[in-house]
Design a protein around this nucleic acid. Structure first.
Lengths: 205, 205
DNA sequence: ATTATCTATAGATCTATAGATAATGC
DNA sequence: ATTATCTATAGATCTATAGATAATGC
């Protein structure tokens, strides 16, 4: 059994753990933590239920592993915000990267949204250790741009919240968006133009 | 039993149904649909579990009743957007009402967020019949303001999405916000100033 | 020898109902 | 007579484990 003093993980170990985590991403993001069952994850992964529990200690272990493994991907767009780049361009590119992520990784967006919505019971430590330092760092960068008169004086913390909210909305509330925009041929493009216009105008000093 | 051909609901009927719905709002918004149990709802309402099922046909009935009863409250701020008012003021006041609602009714916000996040399985009909017509109507109002040159040319649909997203974020992602802003003495006020600045600037023709 | 997988099932949790009893309104 | 409430429990669903067997790596 893979526990305690880890040996090197075999090829099968890696492949099956990956299959399970990918299946779990599907199931958790669609049904929430409590709504997801090991049966669904097992079926989606093409493995038996006890075999799932051979690779993970239990349902919670799968969920926690998933959240912490995806955290890096999730924060990557913000990591790339470059203090030495052109402020306007940097922020608008960040908005664009987040919007692209909402389109390309909606499961991940919904997984995090569901976890936070319920008070982040299994992610709170990660928020403190991984997200907060990065957030503070980038807020400082934005502050310095404001102080230098490069962008309009906005509250950096709340500016970032607005960017997160406006972009992730398209993944998290997709069910509502699709009812309201109808059969739009290129909703993503219209959203992209809208957000560029909106944040672009807002940032001008 | 209260079913089929309804008699007039007694005082006790009304009071207990209200107690149950209020308890259910607590429990559903905190744990999601599947995460909520009749036991929790019963305990929170101060009634026995079978008594809950005397007033409602089942768990789903409670959830659906809750969603449709709250829909009106939820849409009210948008209903109030006045076509004959000053465009700038109307939209900024709408933003403010939505932000106040995120503060005052976070349970309702999270209930809807959770439902939509999981594809609106029990609310899709309501979205079509109640939300969509109102949304279309108010988009037309905003379009007319743009055509009259009263506000900047923005995509009305996506403008409304951005308003919803930015305001509801403070209720739906409160767990994350509170980690990131720390012990802010008046986070609501800072959010309010930020959103006024942001949308105000964006709307100027 | 160790790793991986399966069948069968224990044990917990949850929704819902049966059936009896108490409270209320004519 | 009708409405409201309770205890007890059936029946379904779910997580997790026991115990046996098959596959793989020295």
């Amino acid at each position: 059994m893979p526990d305690g003093t880890q040996k090197k993980p075999s090829r099968i170990q890696k492949r099956n753990r990956r299959k399970i985590l990918d299946a779990a991403l599907d199931v958790f993001s669609q049904n929430g933590y409590r709504g997801a069952t090991l049966d669904q994850i097992a079926a989606e992964a093409g493995l038996s239920k006890p075999n799932i529990l051979y690779y993970f200690q239990g349902k919670e272990d799968i969920h926690v592993t998933l959240l912490s493994q995806l955290m890096e991907t999730w924060l990557d767009p913000l990591v790339e915000l470059d203090p030495d780049g052109d402020p306007q361009t940097e922020i608008l590119d960040y908005v664009q990267r987040k919007l692209d992520m909402a389109r390309d990784l909606p499961r991940e967006s919904r997984l995090f949204a569901g976890e936070i919505l319920q008070g982040a019971p299994r992610m709170a430590p990660n928020l403190e250790t991984a997200l907060k330092p990065l957030f503070d760092e980038k807020c400082a960068v934005i502050s310095s741009w404001i102080d230098a008169g490069k962008i309009a004086p906005l509250d950096p913390q709340h500016l970032i919240f607005s960017i997160w909210a406006a972009t992730q909305h398209y993944a998290d509330f997709a069910a509502q968006v699709s009812v309201l925009v109808g059969a739009d041929t290129d909703s993503h493009h219209r959203a992209s133009v809208h957000l560029s216009t909106m944040f672009g105008k807002m940032l001008r000093p």
